[in-house]
Computed example of a mutant assay.
Amino acid sequence: MSRFRTKYPPRPLRFLHCPTGGKEARSRHTGKANPLTPSISRIHDADLELAAAVLKRDRKATARLIELHADAVHRYVWRRLTPKVDLVDDIVQDVFVAAWRGLPGYSGEASLQTWLVSIARNKVEDYYRRTLAAPLESLEQDEDAPLLASSVNLDANLEQSRQEERAAKILSGIPYEYATALRWRYWEGRTAREMAAATGRTEKAVERLLARARAKFKSRWEETA
Rank of each mutant, 00 (worst) to 15 (best):
A215D: 02
T202H: 09
Y178L: 00
R183S: 02
R220H: 10
K204R: 13
A211E: 07
A179H: 02
N157Y: 15
I119E: 08
E194C: 02
A168I: 11
R220T: 01
N157H: 11
Y127H: 10
L132I: 05
E203P: 02
E194Y: 02
V124H: 00
A213I: 07
L154E: 04
R214F: 00
R183H: 10
I170Y: 08
S172L: 06
L154N: 01
R185H: 14
T180K: 06
A211L: 10
A205W: 09
T202L: 10
S161I: 03
G105M: 10
Y106F: 15
L139P: 04
Y176K: 01
F217N: 03
A197C: 09
A179T: 12
E125Y: 00
S150K: 12
E164Q: 13
D144Q: 12
S107G: 12
P175V: 08
S107K: 13
I174P: 09
R214W: 00
R129S: 08
P175N: 14
A133V: 03
L182K: 09
E164I: 03
R121C: 06
W221K: 05
A120V: 04
Y176S: 03
L209W: 09
Y106V: 05
K204H: 14
R190E: 05
L116Y: 07
A213Y: 09
T199K: 08
K123W: 01
W184H: 05
Y178C: 04
A167E: 14
E203T: 08
R183F: 07
I119T: 10
L158M: 15
R162L: 14
R130M: 03
L171Q: 08
L116M: 02
A205E: 12
E207K: 15
N153V: 01
E140K: 14
Q141N: 15
R121E: 13
E159F: 12
G189R: 12
E194S: 09
L182Y: 10
P146H: 12
E140W: 15
R220L: 12
G189I: 03
A198K: 06
E137T: 15
S111G: 13
E109C: 07
